[in-house]
Amino acid sequence: MDLLTEALESMRTGHPTSIRTDGHAPWGLQLPSTAGAGFHVVLYGSCWLVPVDVRHLEPIPLSTGDVVFLRSGARYILADHPATLPEVPGPERYTKAPPIGSVVLGGSGPRTTLLCGNYHLDMARPHPLVRQLPEVVHLPTRHGRHSELNAAVQLLGAELDNPRVGSDGIVPALIDSLLLYILRAWLDEQPAAAKGWSAALRDSAIAPALGAIHDAPSAPWTVESLAVRSGLSRAAFARRFAVLVGEPPMAYLTRWRMTLAAKLLRDSDMPLTTVAAQTGYSTEFAFAKAFKREYGIAPGGYRRQARAA
């Protein structure tokens, strides 16, 4: 099982939204806070990313090919210079044209072209892999770094500069895939001595145990049976798992089961007894009790809220 893909899919609550932004100096754009995670790709030119809500971060210079992932969807400013006052364009400023809409800002100076967007992720209960990301992931792709991510950026730029037959399908698919390329590139950058999920996914003992949980979440896993998968003793496995993953094995198993249950409740009409069975609970009552303990609401109520949102 591809743990990265599955972790992200468990958090998705909708398709990405995006817009092409053309800024001519002097220009500035204030980005509102969002419920998911933001991203920006510099297709041409250069600019600055200026934090608004995250006080400990300094403005970040961006150049052609740079990709930025904003984990929490906090407010930021994009501008030709950190001192440029931003604007918040109204809906009338946006042009709706295939494959995505666009907005043009600023004066008559040098141009910067960006793809700006939002991934709709459930950030109320993020997967630990996403929760452990830094607030801003900045990935320069120039000088041969991150070849796959760079290729995706170049393909996006080509499709947006010259839309042709098929662009309406190609661009959304590329934007959707971009999230995996971003996180893969970030994981590849982590040092061998790193802790957390970047280390857990590479660890020869913990990765097989995580794979087993994700392959068969309904199986009657115990610390002992997972330790067998890892090739470690029970005590050594439990310690190593908690250090790398950030929580004990059984706590992660419960979290993952509840995450899958929430997704099944949101995205399907599956009966509660079936949801319970697929997430490792022998009765609907036991499942409902565990779900309410995690989410503070009964499964049926959660499903109704999710459908009404």
Rank of each mutant, 00 (worst) to 15 (best):
L149Y: 10
L160F: 00
L174Y: 04
V171W: 02
G166M: 01
H143R: 15
P172G: 03
V130N: 06
L156H: 02
V137C: 15
L115P: 06
V136R: 13
E135L: 14
H127A: 14
V165I: 02
P163K: 08
V165T: 05
V136F: 06
L174A: 08
P126W: 07
D161E: 07
L139S: 14
I170N: 01
N150H: 13
L121M: 11
I170D: 00
P126G: 09
A152W: 02
H143W: 14
R164L: 00
L160Q: 01
H127L: 13
V136W: 05
L156Y: 02
N150S: 15
H146G: 06
L155T: 12
R145V: 11
P163S: 09
Q154P: 00
P172C: 03
L160S: 00
A152T: 13
A158M: 06
Q132D: 15
I175V: 15
S167H: 02
L155N: 05
R145P: 05
H138A: 10
L121T: 03
E159K: 03
V165P: 00
I175Y: 06
M123R: 15
A124E: 15
A124H: 13
I170A: 04
P140V: 01
M123E: 10
R142H: 11
R131C: 02
P140S: 04
N162F: 03
V165A: 07
Q154K: 12
D161S: 07
D168G: 14
G166I: 00
P172V: 00
R142T: 06
V153W: 11
T141I: 04
H138V: 15
V137M: 11
V153N: 11
G166L: 00
A173F: 02
L155E: 10
A173C: 02
